[in-house]
């Protein structure tokens, strides 16, 4: 990405600034605390940011824990299913079906088994993050190039060794896509889970603000959530580019 010429950079700013102004004018005209303008939201951000950052900390920690659980369970399972073709093809329709089930719908069941504590929330997040992980890993390891299997055989690798040294690295590019989807959905579901199984976290903060009719504070929290989401998604993408440099380099060569 090169630096844009000055005129283009200004034209990129026009639309956001106009929208902010329109919002502010609408808020002045409505002049009710139920429809705050960007000014009031900025004040809320200034006043509440220590509290919001603290609550987001809880949320992020749970999202990370849920994602880790999902990655540790689902990536090996996906590779295993891709290797064991019969088991995989029998389980595939079930996976498809689970993929279409919205993660919040599992909340009531998780509540029965795990209550409303951290474990329950992490379980819901892990379910949400696990689906894209296992789908992508399974797909990648199922459609592995036949040559890779032949190489493994001629090296006399055992089954486990084949999975670790051949299947896993070969599936990494698609797993990375799964990771990106999984991180995004872990963040989304963590807020939802907090609102349904309230204890603490940014979801609870939002609900508290709603109960007290503090719309500006709620919008401030949403602004923080969106910033955090932006940063995390960007970090994941950068990490992927860095760790999978060989894959992207390969792509470049093929295009030439």
């Amino acid at each position: 990405m090169s630096i844009l010429p000055d005129r283009q950079r200004y034209s990129a700013l026009v639309l956001p600034v106009v929208l902010l102004l329109v919002w502010q004018v609408l808020a002045w005209r409505a002049s009710t605390p139920l429809f705050p303008g960007p000014g009031q939201v900025a004040i809320s951000i200034w006043r509440l940011y220590p509290q919001i950052v603290g609550q987001i900390g809880y949320t992020l920690m749970r999202a990370a824990a849920g994602f880790l659980v999902a990655a540790v369970v689902m990536i090996p399972l996906g590779i295993l299913l891709g290797r064991l073709k019969t088991v995989g093809s029998v389980l595939e329709p079930i996976l498809d079906m689970m993929a279409t089930l919205p993660p919040p719908a599992v909340v009531p069941i998780v509540m029965l088994f795990a209550g409303t504590g951290d474990a329950a929330k992490i379980a819901v997040i892990a379910y949400a993050a696990g689906i894209p992980l296992i789908m992508n890993t399974y797909e990648a390891s199922k459609t592995l190039h036949p040559m890779a299997t032949l190489v493994a055989r001629s090296l006399r690798l055992r089954r486990l060794e084949t999975m670790v040294f051949i299947d896993l690295p070969a599936s990494l590019p698609m797993i990375a896509t799964g990771v990106r989807l999984a991180v995004a959905s872990a963040l989304l579901v963590s807020v939802t889970a907090e609102m349904l199984l309230a204890t603490n976290g940014i979801g609870v903060f939002l609900q508290r603000q709603q109960e007290n009719f503090q719309i500006a504070n709620g919008l401030a929290a949403i602004a923080f959530i969106s910033m955090i989401g932006l940063i995390v998604n960007d970090l994941v993408q950068r990490l992927e580019r860095r760790l999978l440099f060989w894959h992207y380099r390969l792509d470049l060569h093929n295009e030439r």
Binding site: S11, A184, L206, I222, S226
Partner: peptide, 20 residues
């Protein structure tokens, strides 16, 4: 101009929007 708006709104979860 739309790119920064899209980038900011996109990561907001539906659950966070409901109460407001």
């Amino acid at each position: 101009g739309f790119a920064p708006i899209a980038a900011l709104i996109q990561p907001v979860p539906p659950a966070a929007l409901v109460p407001m």
